[in-house]
């Protein structure tokens, strides 16, 4: 059988995301002995980011990338990390945490199964810092700066920095940085290179925002349950191996980008007193975002103390 995989990512992106997906597809064919394969529909040609969960749930595609931060209300539990910025986990640790939570709290998987979805694997993003037009040494330098914001946690955090959150789409951010419509954008090195933001903003501030989550490699539940046991076992194992493969690719990419920054791209990497950022966690606005998640978790019947503890510095 040929399974379909839908992703918003263009094939030509040639980043850890697209290359690891390519690897996933090849491994699947290899490990099932050529009995099954996966056809990928790249570049959102079948479903845009916002359409993917519905498209997967109703079988438009068998598998696909769900960009979870787009759906805080649809997948509140699986978005835990997004509500807790900053948090101390690295990219690997975030993926590990997701696996652990799915194992320990059935509600995490239920949230997906109730929408006819099944998680094959998790793709966490790299650790984020702040890419700026000017050098930033401490929190006082950020007062009054315009900072690109998106999602649900950054606006409150940026306000706590006494800076101005400016909501921008990913594709607008390049131009906004270039034209100083914003001064800074939270992002990691590999993504900054991928979106070419580092062409127009030359200071990378090591603010410890933590790694973002990320994408769920999800599957239509019926397609998953319709697999024979052997194939399902192959897929389950592949999902675990995928995280290792992806983590290696992502790390290699970050190393390469940081070399490029030192060399021809000329991006200066600056340290930042991390305690100035973690101090902001006590801000009422930031706390309100976290409380919102906790109330959603309570509604879902999750006792979240251990989860929250993991996300504390």
């Amino acid at each position: 059988k040929t399974y379909t995989y839908i992703t918003y990512k263009p094939q030509g992106a040639n980043d850890a995301h697209s290359r690891s997906l390519q690897w996933f597809v090849e491994e699947f064919a290899k490990r099932t002995g050529g009995k099954h394969d996966i056809e990928v529909f790249w570049g959102g040609s079948v479903a845009a980011v916002g359409e993917t969960p519905e498209a997967l749930a109703y079988g438009v595609g068998d598998m696909g990338d769900i960009v979870t931060p787009y759906f805080p209300d649809q997948f509140p539990l699986n978005n835990a990390i997004g509500f807790f910025i900053p948090q101390p986990l690295s990219s690997d640790a975030v993926a590990e945490a997701m696996v652990e939570w799915h194992r320990d709290y059935p509600q995490f998987a239920d949230e997906l199964t109730s929408q006819n979805l099944h998680a094959i694997s998790f793709r966490s993003l790299e650790g984020y810092g702040l890419l700026c037009k000017q050098p930033i040494a401490s929190m006082t330098d950020l007062a009054g700066k315009r900072i690109r914001s998106y999602g649900f946690a950054y606006p409150a955090l940026i306000e706590a920095m006494k800076a101005i959150p400016v909501s921008l789409t990913t594709s607008d951010t390049y131009e906004a940085l270039e034209r100083s419509i914003v001064d800074c954008a939270p992002i990691g090195p590999a993504l900054a290179r991928g979106f070419k933001y580092d062409e127009v903003a030359k200071y990378y501030i090591e603010m410890p925002f933590g790694a973002s989550f990320g994408h769920i490699l999800a599957m239509n539940l019926d397609s998953y349950q319709g697999m024979d046991d052997e194939t399902r076992a192959v897929l389950d194992q592949l999902g675990i191996d995928y995280m290792v493969e992806y983590a290696a690719m992502l790390e290699a990419e970050e190393v390469k980008v940081r070399e490029l920054w030192q060399g021809e791209l000329g991006v200066t990497v600056l340290p930042f007193p991390g305690e100035e950022l973690t101090a902001l966690i006590d801000d009422t606005g930031v706390q309100a975002v976290r409380a919102e998640w906790e109330s959603k978790a309570t509604d879902a019947g999750v006792s979240f103390d251990d989860i929250v503890a993991k996300l504390r510095f």
Partner: peptide, 9 residues
């Protein structure tokens, strides 16, 4: 049903 919000500024 899920109380979907636009979350930004």
């Amino acid at each position: 049903a899920i109380g979907e919000m636009k979350r930004g500024s």
